[in-house]
Amino acid sequence: MDKINKPHDKLFKEVMGDIETAKSFIQHYLPPKIVRLIDPESIAIETDSYLEKDLSEYFFDLLFRVKMQQEEAYVYLLFKHKSRVDKHVNLQLLGYMTSIWKKSVPRPLPVILPVVFYQGREKWEAPQWFSNRFSNYDRMGEDLKDYIPDYKYELFEISSLRDEEVKGAKRLRIYLDVLRLRALRGKAAIREVMLRVAVTISELPRTEANERFFQVCTIYLFETMGGEYFQQMSELMETVSEERSEKMQTIADMLRQEGMEKGMEKGLEMGIIKGREEGREEGLEKGMEKGREELLWKLISKKFPKASKKYFEKLKTLTIEKLDALGLELIDMKNEEELKKYLM
């Protein structure tokens, strides 16, 4: 079983944790016979996760409360990141559903519609009906079948989506195309989808929520695409929005700097970098600060070519926390006056 990465978790929850995007997914990708029963205005997010602690490294989940035929019900989204098909998922789902039902006692139990998100390239061939997990179920007598619980989960197989099947709200379409990139083969097909992602991102209104989504999406792309494809994505973005492309590069530079610092810390922990014990921690911290100062000055100079060098001297007086905060603020700064207010 492959562990999930934090970028996958963050992107999934950033997208599907938005009510309007969740509504769009439910309306476009659940079976029409079920969609007709759901009151879209009733959809609300439950904050609890029902994953066992040892499985939360491999899955993540979201639970939505809905009204279905005027009765309380739930839509349970379980995301299984990449790897192989998991034939045990329906047994795990049954455990999560039981946990949800326990909270309803002594009231009547609500209907739960479980949905499995699957991102892997391998075709999902595990049985969706729980009863198919039992040996010889098809030849089993009806009297014995009375003792076997049964249910079905819905499967959302992302890698099998064709271009024309990607639909819904803009953020949902961006999310699905970004996930599909990992399964696409051929540079032309990848480029076409990347361009579509860039165009759709450029069409998003400039709201706080959309800016946060863009940052999380960029981090995901940086962490999962590889340097060559990320650079190509940034170049395609530049053809539709120079501002978005610059922000992508700024976020990427900050992530590279953070990666270098983590590598230094790891090296010290493993004993790869040897030195005097006395003052080593202080030296590392100063080195990190200097690296951030130089990176930020490069970013400032690129964004505001006429910026005074006195700003660089001011950067040297800031703590790591303040340097990080400035890096994020810099992304949205429109002119040098805003920078001056921050540093002077």
Results as ranks from 00 to 15, higher is better:
Arg180Cys: 02
Arg206Gly: 03
Ala209Phe: 07
Asp143Thr: 13
Pro127Val: 01
Lys170Val: 10
Met237Gly: 00
Glu20Val: 04
Leu113Val: 03
Glu41Pro: 06
Glu243Thr: 15
Glu243Asp: 15
Glu164Phe: 10
Gly186Phe: 07
Val111Pro: 12
Gly263Ala: 11
Ile273Gly: 09
Gly227Asn: 15
Ala189Lys: 15
Ala126Val: 01
Asp61Met: 00
Gly226Tyr: 05
Asp253Arg: 09
Thr218His: 02
Ser308Lys: 13
Lys102Pro: 04
Leu161Ser: 00
Ser135Glu: 12
Arg84Pro: 10
Glu157His: 02
Lys6Arg: 14
Leu51His: 00
Val105Tyr: 15
Leu295Glu: 01
Leu295Tyr: 00
Asn210His: 03
Tyr175Ile: 01
Lys322Thr: 05
Lys266Leu: 15
Glu337Trp: 11
Ser160Cys: 10
Met260Arg: 08
Gln92Met: 10
Tyr58Thr: 08
Met140Cys: 11
Val35Met: 08
Gly267Thr: 01
Asp18Lys: 08
Met1Asn: 08
Met333Arg: 04
Met68Tyr: 08
Pro7Ala: 07
Lys298Ser: 11
Leu221Glu: 02
Val199Thr: 07
Val105Arg: 11
Leu295Lys: 02
Tyr220Glu: 07
Ile320Arg: 02
Arg84Ile: 13
Gln128Trp: 04
Tyr151Lys: 13
Ser99Ala: 11
Ser135His: 14
Val166Met: 09
Lys3His: 10
Leu315Pro: 02
Lys314Tyr: 09
Glu164Val: 10
Val111Arg: 15
Lys290Phe: 13
Glu20Arg: 08
Met68Lys: 12
Leu176Thr: 02
Glu14Thr: 06
Leu268His: 15
Glu258His: 13
Thr250Glu: 00
Leu343Phe: 03
Asn335Ser: 08
Asp2Phe: 11
Glu154His: 12
Ser99Asp: 14
Glu261Thr: 05
Leu94Gln: 13
Ala126His: 04
Glu122Met: 06
Ser301Ala: 10
Lys10Glu: 14
Glu14Ala: 02
Phe222Met: 06
Gly271Glu: 02
Ala44Asn: 06
Gln119Gly: 05
Glu57Ala: 13
Gln69Trp: 11
Asn210Thr: 04
Arg162Glu: 14
Thr239Leu: 08
Lys13Ser: 07
Glu277Met: 15
Glu277Gln: 14
Glu122Cys: 00
Phe79Glu: 03
Tyr220Leu: 00
Lys6Gly: 09
Phe304Pro: 01
Ser159Cys: 04
Arg196Cys: 07
Val111Thr: 12
Lys87Gly: 11
Met68His: 09
Val199Ile: 08
Arg139Asn: 14
Lys247Ser: 04
Tyr229His: 13
Phe59Cys: 07
Arg292Leu: 03
Gln215His: 12
Ile112Lys: 06
Gly259Arg: 08
Lys316Phe: 13
Val116Leu: 03
Met225Pro: 09
Gly275His: 12
Val197Phe: 01
Ile320Met: 00
Gly168Trp: 04
Gly259Pro: 01
